[in-house]
Design a protein around this nucleic acid. Structure first.
Lengths: 229, 229
DNA sequence: TGACAAAGTGTTCAAAATACACTAACATAG
DNA sequence: CTATGTTAGTGTATTTTGAACACTTTGTCA
């Protein structure tokens, strides 16, 4: 089963930068390559685009195949087309980034990945191809975007405390935020739904739980509201 | 001269949304297609990527071939990969957008374009492929970007008056701006170099000319300065 | 020289961002 | 049962920024 074209074509791939968050750090999901080139090296999950799927579908498929992760917020990042970026042949790769809740998504390495694991964004191993560059650009984009779009909620569990939310922003933006000002601002946006629940199993005063209110968000959006941290 | 691959591949193209500005309007550069599909229809300049050029090089080459325009600020916009976007076969297109000074760049339709012309952004004809969507996204991106990055200067002649600069922002953002506040802000940024020249051939008081000071801009950038209109 | 046309120029008010520290609630250990 | 430790939760004063607003100056041209 081969195909013939009149002119040569680059091969087209997708790569995914998946962000997760735990108590300690902002993390990126990497796979260990099971095949050449760069066999054994860590890389972003990704692979070639098939003819019957969109770019985003390809990204989701590869992610599921290689790491078991599905159901996530995906956004196109940038397309990388440098000529020598793949040593085998010309490959142009459309990169996506995604945010997931680390605890809800258990990893399962599969197919052509030997292993899959989370790495702290400020302690990434050397990556295959130009994936270090891609990861760096994704991180920059995330930092830029999180301040004016409420995307960070994807990183948290459904129910979270204001402190968790604040720490999420602190970890992504890599700067301290004043607790009172943060609460004033975030509650003032009317974007969160206050729940009748508090934390359990903590050895101190339990904090109130909140959840992101999608409906309120959509209403605000329509009115041209600008979310800003 | 044909090539054979083990698996089918999408064809890879680039498209360019080139913005220009005249006294009246913000404009986009279109070409009239000289070949099927959509022969005779207006479309964004663009074409297929060759194996020995990067994506950006391909965009610049096509732009030059089809419109004569060269030496411009180009930035990647988005990659379009919907399955039926080209009726012939699967084509994935990396879109770029560019800003040029309309008066310095004379158009010359060539190769597979029948004609090239500027169209006001709020009066575009129906376009071939999904190019209307691409143009819409580019315009949105330009509006979003121009307020926090000094890219709009590319649309003006090298030497310009503060009124021209203000009108540029008003046309892009599509809202009036207060003259005194605008001047205070833009001069306060220390981004412009005041020239010892004024307008000539105007039938009223001549305005002072300024130019964008690239050096000052780079210094401010390094210090993490955020330009904002 | 008078009328026209755009250039150029400050102040006031309102809103938003920032800096800042203590009390309340709950869990746990002694 | 009480003292200690840990995080939750809360308000005000100050500074900075954004927004509204109108008249005088300079030059051209009839």
């Amino acid at each position: 089963m081969t195909v013939t074209y009149q002119y040569p074509r680059p091969n087209l791939a997708v790569d995914c930068v998946v962000f997760g968050l735990d108590e300690a750090d902002l993390k990126i999901l990497l796979i260990q390559r099971g095949l050449p080139p760069f066999e054994g090296k860590w890389a972003l999950p990704g692979g070639f685009v098939q003819m019957d799927e969109t770019l985003e579908e390809a990204a989701k498929r590869e992610l599921k195949e290689e790491t078991g992760i599905q159901d996530l917020y995906l956004e196109q990042l940038y397309t990388f087309g440098a000529i020598g970026r793949d040593p085998r042949e010309r490959v142009v790769s459309v990169a996506y980034y995604a945010l997931v809740n680390l605890r809800d998504h258990k990893l399962m390495a599969a197919t052509d990945a030997r292993d899959a694991a989370w790495f702290s964004t400020d302690d990434l191993p050397p990556l295959a191809f130009d994936h270090s560059e891609i990861a760096g650009i994704a991180l920059k984009r995330l930092k830029g975007k999180v301040v004016y779009e409420p995307i960070g909620f994807e990183l948290l569990p459904m129910k979270f405390t204001l402190t968790q939310l604040q720490q999420m922003y602190e970890k992504i933006l890599d700067r301290p935020i004043d607790k009172r000002n943060f609460r004033k601002k975030i509650l003032g946006m009317d974007l969160l739904q206050e729940l009748d629940e508090v934390q359990v199993d903590v050895s101190h005063r339990a904090a109130r739980l909140y959840k992101f209110d999608e409906k309120k968000y959509r209403k605000l959006r329509q009115r041209g509201f600008v979310f800003e941290i």
